[in-house]
Design a binder for these strands. Structure first.
Length: 234
DNA sequence: GCATTAATTGGTC
DNA sequence: GACCAATTAATGC
């Protein structure tokens, strides 16, 4: 079942914002709608690039595979966000993989369609450029964090990122992630994540229930890593 | 309910 | 601070 940009609720999507012009409409019609089941791997690392993805609805993790099959989650994405933008224009093959964390709907624009759009809609091109700039800034910030933060700080930072991005519902983070996925994102191991979480729980900063995690005191957590945040959130 | 998978804890290097 | 092993909790079938 196909979803259309005209009725899409994601106001912050770059296509929704800039693609519904007279010039854009015929291109927007060419997009493909992809229904993705939970844990489906829809971008395979090393596979040929086949355009750009936008999340219509759902939650996605984007990662890279390292030495010994060790996983590094690069970012998470949800409604309205772009995936696969690094492969676009630059390389022939994806350097990342993307997996749906829950049943999701994606919009796929082929490389050709993107080229046509970017060459006819300056505002879209401009917004995409700003987006690339932001992404670069975030990844530079992340490099510094990885080098300078302790494990405890990295885990706190990861939890706050998840909190910012997905928020909480009934006092628990509104996304289902395993301890291992948090570890892969924070750049450490699942055992370390579990240890940090259980001490934070003892300190009254977090609550847990099964695999669900709830942040009890955001301000105190923020305070603990405040020294590392000179610029912006990432 | 049983079997597989994930969370937790303790220990070693 | 990573890796390994053992135990316990959670989840799939």
């Amino acid at each position: 079942m196909k979803v259309h940009c005209q009725t899409c609720p994601n106001k912050n999507c770059l296509i929704k914002k800039n693609g519904l012009t007279l010039e854009g409409l015929p291109h927007v019609e060419k997009k493909h709608t992809i229904h993705c089941k939970k844990s489906q791997n829809f971008i395979i690392e090393g596979a040929p690039v086949h355009g750009l993805y936008f999340v219509y609805e759902g939650k996605i993790k984007v990662g890279k595979t390292g030495i010994n099959g060790r996983e590094q989650i690069v970012r998470f994405a949800q409604d309205g966000e772009i995936i696969g933008h690094r492969g676009f224009g630059a390389g022939e093959f994806y350097q990342i993989h993307a997996v749906a964390l829950e049943d999701s709907i994606l919009c796929n624009f082929s490389t050709e369609t993107m080229h046509e759009m970017l060459q006819t809609i300056p505002q879209l091109t401009y917004d995409l450029m700003l987006f690339y700039g932001e992404e670069l800034n975030k990844s530079e910030t992340k490099v510094r964090k990885f080098a300078q933060m302790t494990v405890r700080e990295k885990v706190i930072d990861a939890l706050l990122y998840i909190f910012r991005k997905f928020g909480q519902r009934e006092n628990f983070l509104d996304i289902q992630l395993s301890r291992k996925e948090i570890a892969d994102f924070a750049g450490t191991t699942d055992e370390q994540v579990i240890r940090v979480i259980s001490t934070l729980k003892k300190e009254g900063l977090l609550i847990t229930s099964g695999k669900k995690i709830g942040i009890h005191n955001v301000e105190l957590l923020k305070k603990e890593i405040a020294d590392h945040h000179f610029f912006l959130d990432s």
